[in-house]
């Protein structure tokens, strides 16, 4: 392009891009926007729950919930996610105090609980495959793997996001942009714990009844 963009002498240099990313206006709207994303994610899970609700008792002469699920393992899984929720809460409290080292520590603890959760879930899936209960066995198992797997995938991406933010915080410190990102992840993480309440209640606990 052949423009002559030279500013007239004495005038301020023109700004070609937004230099200050984190105005307080954008922070408020980011939180609202992220909440709306979570609500749309909630609808995805609602459709998967509805699918499970419809197909959950169609075994095609295959194994049922009672044959497959080990509730004490699920209790451990639930505990992992619940602990990770409170440790993320502690990370946010330390972030408010601008204590970077402790924020990072609690984020790391949260990540470890998250990894423990995903590992246990993968182990459960492998175990189910060995028991002769892969997703294609029955309508119940298809809807079960889709619902629980989608949740597990969300947690996995949450861990990836968490690690990314820990690197960001390490590199740039607890600047406003990083705080905003950590708050978004906080909402995401607590939201996943909330979905898990639905999963262990509807799929596992009510599943083994009757």
């Amino acid at each position: 392009m052949m423009h002559t963009d030279t500013a007239p002498p004495g005038s301020a240099a023109p700004a070609f891009f937004v230099t200050d990313e984190e105005g307080h206006h954008s922070e408020g709207s980011t939180m609202l926007g992220f909440w709306l994303y979570l609500m749309s994610d909630c609808l995805i899970f609602a459709t998967l729950f509805a699918t499970y609700g419809v197909l959950g008792r169609n075994y095609a002469a295959g194994p049922s919930q009672k044959d497959l699920f080990d509730l004490s393992g699920i209790a451990v899984n639930t505990a992992m996610l619940l602990f990770s929720s409170i440790t993320y809460g502690f990370a946010m409290l330390e972030m408010d105090k601008d204590n970077q080292r402790r924020t990072q520590m609690w984020l790391a603890v949260t990540g470890l609980f998250g990894i423990a959760f995903v590992t246990l879930e993968i182990r459960e899936f492998v175990h189910l495959f060995h028991e002769g209960a892969p997703p294609w066995r029955s309508g119940f198992l298809s809807s079960f793997y889709t619902l629980v797997g989608t949740h597990g995938l969300h947690v996995s991406f949450g861990i990836l996001w968490l690690v990314t933010l820990m690197v960001q915080v390490r590199k740039y410190g607890l600047v406003a942009a990083n705080k905003r990102r950590l708050m978004c992840l906080s909402m995401f993480w607590h939201f996943l714990d909330l979905i898990w309440i639905g999963v262990f209640t509807v799929v596992y606990l009510i599943g083994v009844l009757e």
């Binding site: 307080h24 206006h25 408020g28 939180m31 809460g89 705080k179 708050m183």
Partner: peptide, 14 residues
């Protein structure tokens, strides 16, 4: 709703 001060972000975490 449009203008968020610092007090707001502090209150958001409990």
């Amino acid at each position: 709703p449009a203008s968020h001060g610092h007090g707001d972000t502090e209150g958001g975490h409990g």
